[in-house]
Design a binder for these strands. Structure first.
Lengths: 338, 338
DNA sequence: AACACCTAGCTAATCGTTTCGTTGGCAGAG
DNA sequence: CTCTGCCAACGAAACGATTAGCTAGGTGTT
């Protein structure tokens, strides 16, 4: 392939001049500029990012590490992030930690090798996640997305999980439900913990308390939620309404209902935090909160690029987004029950 | 950050020896090896990929260019590809061409700059897509995924679209439907064209022909399919069954039905090629073909890695996967109609 | 006319690896 | 005792860009 030296020879200028033209980094007379551009065109020259990165110590790469790529919530994040990253002139390197701390560790060291300029990280474990450091031992520009890590000073983008759960729970109680069960996410995650706390808080505020047997973890997974829901729904004194902590688990619950021959909302009301986009034509439509994923992603990139340019010194910022309740037809008023 | 020279100094060896240890590329005596490893540990040395790539002319990066990241089909591809790419020791750089040829061009030149080792490409336009070339003008190792490009010799992974459409159409006809409409994808894509051809072929084989007004393009998009479906379903002599060419469009059609107050399958039967994963709990479940995305992706990576290692010389291979029909409850037997 | 100053462009050092070709020490053969 | 061969380890030249520092020529001031 053509190198900058080939271009310089052909245009009868020095490599420094070619570099100046390519990067617009210094004034070059119109005549030389034209000669250089012509040579570039004739040789089909593309600067080598590898060489440029080696010299500049940057890579024009932004890494996105999601916790579960099979989850449509994160798929949407990937979609939004690709667009935002491209808009800022970077390229996106994608990793999936699959909720496993050891994967996360492997990925972060890989990111270090690639010397990515920044990282958007959905941390797997609040306790275990180490802030990524670059090759000089400095913390890499990082934005934590969706979940936070205790005691770590970093820029974060989160959703108000407590509020999400509270909104949904209040809605269910407004319909008259008091025997509300929940399928939670992993409680070591702020998303899992916060949603459970919000639900409990809302219920207690009105003098209710969920039966311990009605509070189960579905690990944020479709299949786990499916089996947990089957257990929960076949026990004698089952709940009349179920708050499900995320969208894929809600679909798992729906599948369990279908397999058990139960009807929603006739036999039980289901409401969730988050949902799967694009299923508005299928019934029942879930009552759920929606999260402004696109806004969150754009804000994450804004913060990240700012930090890349301003360095590690600046104070860390934490932006919290508010979810909004969207009512479908998956909930019915509670019927009086013995 | 620690460089190979720092390690060499500390271990009192040459950089060549450190390199040999790191890459296992030459025999090093146990004693020196131990010293080197110790120094690496003490300095927390990570080799710079930028420098390594510059020297080796490789980047350990594989690019994936999808045509529509918002489409769950491609989201699944991304998910499977990330895993496969990691398993082969590469990292995944993700791009979304959003079905726009100009984006695709921009992306391919970016990929060239990054000197990615290989590309998995869902081409946007059969005619316009140029095979990517590396900096030496050689064609880059590339696997075309899902769609093929006319006259281009390249490795391809595709699904048998004609067969998919034929299976679905035959199923509808077996139920007694003859007034079958279709919402197709863009006909300049092999996926769009093939699915329409398969449908027509199947109908003609039994002496039927769809009304021209019942054959419409939904551009593979949810919103377009939604509006087209509304038109199609409100015209006087509407079809009794609809074959929809992909999963997101099928959901758009479902949404249109819901908004029109029509019931599926009571008022109309819907069947599609491809679907959205994980919605098995919602009703009605679509009758559709399913595509072995994971197998397809793994095979794509196998081909790609082979080509990276064997060079451009080898013959190009085209692997065609077979879709399978999965019956839901979105189709009912045709009722006799005037 | 002499001097300082500015600027366009060049030369060459540098980034951190890999790798080719060389060195030096030791063992076995003559 | 010398010569040859072998092999572990090394030194130094790439890879392709950026950029600090320099040169030469032109301009403006006194």
């Amino acid at each position: 392939m053509a190198t900058i030296r080939d271009v310089a020879n052909r245009a009868k200028v020095s490599t420094a001049t070619v570099s100046a033209v390519v990067n617009d980094s210094a004034y070059v007379s119109p005549e030389l500029r034209a000669r250089v551009l012509a040579a570039i065109g004739e040789l089909d020259y593309t600067p080598s990012l590898a060489a440029r990165n080696l010299k500049r110590g940057r890579s024009q790469l932004i890494a996105l590490v999601v916790a579960d790529l099979a989850n449509p919530f994160f798929a949407r994040l990937v979609w939004a992030a690709e667009a935002a990253v491209a808009a800022w002139g970077y390229s996106l390197v994608l990793f999936n930690s699959d909720e496993k701390p050891e994967n996360e560790r492997r990925i972060l060291s890989r990111i270090k090798m690639l010397s990515c300029d920044g990282v958007i990280l959905v941390p797997v474990d609040v306790a275990a996640t180490q802030p990524p450091r670059d090759s000089e031992g400095e913390p890499m520009p990082t934005v934590l997305f969706g979940r936070t890590v205790e005691g770590q000073k970093a820029d974060t983008i989160t959703i108000d999980n407590v509020s999400a759960a509270r909104q949904v729970t209040n809605y269910l109680m407004d319909l008259g439900h008091t025997r509300i069960g929940t399928i939670t996410g992993p409680l070591h995650l702020t998303t899992g913990r916060g949603r459970l706390d919000g639900m409990l808080e809302a219920m207690r505020a009105r003098g209710h308390e969920p039966a311990p047997a009605h509070v189960r973890s579905g690990e944020f997974r479709e299949d786990t939620a499916y089996s947990v829901a089957r257990e929960l729904l076949t026990q004698p004194d089952g709940p009349t309404a179920l708050y499900v902590a995320n969208g894929v688990m809600a679909l798992g619950v729906m599948r369990a209902l279908a397999d058990l021959g139960m009807k929603c909302p006739d036999d039980i009301s289901i409401a969730s935090t988050d949902t799967i986009p694009g299923i508005g034509g299928l019934r029942p439509r879930l009552t759920r909160t929606e999260h402004p994923v696109i806004d969150m992603t754009n804000e994450a990139l804004r913060l990240l690029v700012e930090r890349i340019n301003r360095g590690a010194g600046a104070d860390s910022r934490n932006v919290v987004f508010q979810p909004s309740l969207v009512v479908g037809e998956s909930c019915a008023p509670a019927r009086r029950r013995s």
